[in-house]
């Protein structure tokens, strides 16, 4: 029983870590977006405000995949262990 609970907790923590690898993608994407925005502003300083707005919008959209990973990670670390341990304990009690 203790071993099973330990496996559940450990795997939840591992899964959280693996899920947050998705944070790499938005990082690269946003970096590219900001680099391009810098180039655009350097070329045309008068278009700074519209470039900044568009860049922020693009960054927000690019961030979405990372935030999906974050939501899954939060669910895994705060919600899943309790649910799974409860499920395990209930089934064990039912078998007895």
């Amino acid at each position: 029983m203790e071993l099973a609970i330990g496996i559940i907790l450990g795997c939840c923590a591992l899964g959280t870590g693996i899920a947050m690898i998705a944070g790499v993608g938005p990082g690269i994407g946003e970096g590219n977006a900001v680099a391009s925005a810098c180039e655009a502003i350097a070329r045309q300083p008068e278009s700074k405000s519209s470039v900044t707005t568009t860049m922020l919008m693009g960054c927000a959209i690019a961030e979405t995949t990372g935030l999906y990973a974050l939501v899954i990670a939060i669910l895994l670390i705060f919600v899943a262990p309790g649910l799974l341990v409860d499920l395990l304990v209930n089934t064990m009690n039912g078998l007895k």
């Binding site: 961030e63 979405t64 999906y68 974050l70 939060i74």
Partner: peptide, 16 residues
């Protein structure tokens, strides 16, 4: 779904 997750994820990640 993506609109809700984006907003909530950003604020929640900040507080976490």
């Amino acid at each position: 779904v993506s609109m809700a997750f984006r907003h909530y994820g950003n604020v929640l990640s900040g507080s976490v």
